[in-house]
């Protein structure tokens, strides 16, 4: 009769890909809320994004409240 044996495989290695993804998310989120003055939407909308400042206005109150310079 075959016997089953349980083994423990320890994989404590730091997931480098996950760290890289998190670093990108950190940078993108920080820029979006703390620093965007139309830059992100300008990739698609051009100059109009700098005039309308949708993301700036959307994040305006959080930007002030979280301590980032706003305008």
């Amino acid at each position: 009769m075959p016997s089953a044996r349980e083994i423990t495989i320890s994989k404590s290695k730091t997931p480098i890909l996950a760290i890289a993804i998190l670093a990108v998310i950190f940078g993108f989120g920080l820029f979006t809320v703390g620093y965007d003055q139309g830059h992100l939407f300008s990739i698609v909308l051009g100059q109009e994004a700098f005039d309308e400042l949708w993301i700036h206005e959307l994040t305006h109150d959080m930007r002030h409240a979280a301590g980032f310079p706003c305008h």
């Binding site: 670093a23 989120g29 920080l30 979006t32 206005e57 994040t59 109150d61 959080m62």
Partner: peptide, 21 residues
């Protein structure tokens, strides 16, 4: 209205960002 409504969404984005760090 847009700015106040954005508090929660901006909070979610900034929180996710600092959560990543």
């Amino acid at each position: 209205y847009w700015q106040k409504g954005g508090q929660i969404l901006a909070g979610a984005i900034l929180g996710t960002s600092f959560g990543a760090l």
